[in-house]
Amino acid sequence: MPEWIPVPGSAKARLIEAALHHFERAGFEGSNVTDIAAKASVTTGSLYHHFGSKLGLYTVVRTDLERRVTDRMEGAAESAGMSDAIPDTPGDATCRAAVRSAVLVAFDAAVRFDACRVLGEPPPHDDADPIEVTVRAMLSRDLEYAAGMLVAAWRSALLNVAGGATVAPVRSALEFVIHD
């Protein structure tokens, strides 16, 4: 079993679940290890043992969510015909439809996972943003900078939902921004 998949009900699994709850409600900066550990019914020592730090725990939570979202994005793009498209053809309608589908599926997944704030916040590291990398792979070289803009709109939409906005109108606004 890969190390990042904790045994259900284990201290590590409870910490991940508690962390997602706290990071989603208060953000990374607003969460503290004492509250996360208490919600998981473990000591802070257990948190440090399994993850090394609050940032280590956040990175595990976020990396898992990003992987789950990018998997769905790739599936959505393929369903929209991306496997038959030629990304180096600027303005290719199939590529545009694939990107649109992928971004909307990513939004819906983040909402379903109750991870709008976690995924809406900028990544906590200088590594490549996996969401942006996924979108960029669907675009021609002439449009590669659009990936950052689309992901910024996606993150903004997620933060609006995390801030209490109703999902449907935020999704409609995102659809407007990434229209065909």
Score class of each variant (00 low, 15 high):
residue 170 V to R: 01
residue 158 L to M: 07
residue 94 T to Y: 05
residue 157 A to M: 02
residue 23 F to C: 01
residue 88 D to M: 14
residue 37 A to P: 01
residue 117 R to K: 04
residue 105 V to W: 06
residue 95 C to L: 13
residue 104 L to C: 02
residue 94 T to N: 03
residue 46 S to C: 03
residue 32 N to F: 02
residue 118 V to Q: 00
residue 60 V to R: 06
residue 61 V to R: 00
residue 85 A to S: 10
residue 154 W to H: 02
residue 80 A to Y: 03
residue 5 I to Q: 14
residue 21 H to K: 15
residue 147 A to Y: 04
residue 4 W to I: 05
residue 147 A to P: 05
residue 64 D to N: 11
residue 111 V to M: 08
residue 45 G to M: 07
residue 89 T to A: 13
residue 31 S to A: 15
residue 164 G to P: 11
residue 10 S to L: 02
residue 180 D to E: 13
residue 93 A to N: 02
residue 174 L to P: 01
residue 15 L to N: 03
residue 159 L to D: 02
residue 23 F to I: 02
residue 87 P to R: 13
residue 110 A to Y: 10
residue 127 D to W: 05
residue 108 D to W: 09
residue 161 V to T: 05
residue 88 D to R: 15
residue 139 L to E: 00
residue 164 G to H: 15
residue 86 I to T: 08
residue 153 A to Q: 07
residue 63 T to C: 07
residue 88 D to F: 09
residue 105 V to A: 14
residue 166 T to F: 08
residue 128 A to P: 14
residue 167 V to N: 06
residue 171 R to K: 15
residue 41 S to N: 09
residue 86 I to Y: 14
residue 161 V to N: 00
residue 45 G to S: 08
residue 99 V to P: 00
residue 133 V to T: 10
residue 151 V to H: 00
residue 130 P to A: 02
residue 168 A to M: 10
residue 152 A to P: 03
residue 70 T to W: 13
residue 34 T to M: 03
residue 127 D to N: 13
residue 34 T to N: 05
residue 29 E to S: 04
residue 162 A to C: 10
residue 8 P to N: 11
residue 53 S to Q: 07
residue 146 A to M: 11
residue 7 V to L: 09
residue 141 R to S: 15
residue 1 M to A: 10
residue 6 P to A: 10
residue 51 F to H: 00
residue 51 F to Q: 01
residue 17 E to Y: 06
residue 95 C to P: 03
residue 88 D to N: 15
residue 16 I to S: 08
residue 96 R to K: 15
residue 16 I to Q: 08
residue 86 I to L: 14
residue 32 N to G: 12
residue 175 E to C: 11
residue 96 R to E: 14
residue 2 P to W: 04
residue 112 R to M: 09
residue 33 V to P: 03
residue 109 A to V: 14
residue 30 G to V: 06
